[in-house]
């Protein structure tokens, strides 16, 4: 039982970690949390469900191809990731970039505004009830996990390694660091701010789209699902320290395990409230996060 709880808690934490990494990446550019990120996750999930269903019907009625399901899943993933990236870039270019200089608080409120608008639009288009992808999943016997979850785990590990390499080794990563460290100086040294910010937003959209697809296959999607993950990842980000990617991931996984144990021994509401209370206490005592070197200005 203990092993099972740890195992599923870990995989629960991976979901939270994907969203938290998205939050942390955007933090580097906007210097605050973008709360509409999770709604873009919901959006990508919806796109995946609909495009996968549509393509499967299209292929099976017009063409005689083998591996219809795998092709439709791959094309669905591609479409969903692409649409998520395009939507993110549009939001970044036309909403966030023009108002970036006005202060972080205004950015937070704006992101809330975007989140409310996106949720309402999605509930008008797709209705409020839960939609599940039609893919039938088979768990791996003996392990009790779906292949999807192992894919997501390997994706998360790869993206962490790659991101870390990019940030430490390449010029791109160094310019991100420069932007974070001193924005005005970075502009003065002709660092291409717009390009970098688009790239970072694009990467965050890619990560978020993967978690959205996985969510739509595993549990199903409803328009307000983002709020739940938003709160969890927000906790993990603040606990882990926003600029520290590893800290965020560790905090997310710890949070996942904690929630799993809490759900088992108490009830979901109690465990969620406990998480929020821990977050509140932490905000009072150590607002810069647990795994963090002190750079951030409070």
């Amino acid at each position: 039982m203990l092993f099972d709880l740890l195992k599923y808690g870990f995989f629960n934490g991976i979901y939270i970690a994907l969203v938290s990494v998205g939050f942390a990446l955007i933090f580097n550019i906007l210097r605050t949390i973008d709360f509409s990120l999770t709604d873009r996750m919901t959006f990508s999930g919806y796109v995946f469900i609909i495009s996968e269903k549509y393509i499967k019907g299209l292929i099976s009625s017009h063409l005689q191809l083998p591996f219809v399901e795998i092709i439709s899943i791959l094309v669905g993933c591609l479409l969903s990731i692409l649409s998520c990236i395009i939507l993110t870039l549009i939001i970044e270019k036309y909403i966030f970039t023009p108002i970036k200089e006005k202060g972080t608080s205004i950015l937070i409120i704006t992101s809330f505004g975007i989140s409310v608008i996106m949720q309402s639009l999605m509930s008008i288009i797709f209705t409020n009830s839960t939609i599940v992808s039609s893919i039938q999943e088979y768990s791996i016997p003996g392990i009790g996990l779906y292949p999807r979850e192992i894919l997501v785990l390997s994706f998360a590990v790869t993206i962490m390694i790659v991101l870390n390499l990019i940030i430490k080794k390449t010029l791109f990563g160094k310019s991100i660091n420069a932007l974070v460290f001193n924005y005005e100086l970075a502009i003065f040294h002709k660092i291409p701010v717009k390009k970098i910010s688009s790239l970072v937003f694009g990467i965050s959209a890619f990560i978020i789209a993967i978690s959205g697809i996985s969510l739509s296959v595993g549990f199903g999607i409803y328009p307000n699902i983002g709020n739940k993950y938003m709160i969890y990842s927000f906790c993990a980000c603040l606990i882990g320290g926003l600029k520290n990617l590893y800290g965020t991931v560790i905090a997310s996984i710890l949070l996942g395990v904690f929630l799993q144990f809490g759900d088992c021994f108490t009830s979901p509401i109690v465990s969620e409230s406990l998480t929020l209370i821990i977050l509140l206490v932490l905000l009072y005592i150590k607002p810069e996060g647990l795994f963090f070197e002190k750079i951030r200005v409070i």
Partner: peptide, 10 residues
């Protein structure tokens, strides 16, 4: 109200 928020705050 989302549109009003974004518009009026900016």
């Amino acid at each position: 109200f989302g549109l009003i928020l974004i518009f009026s705050i900016n």
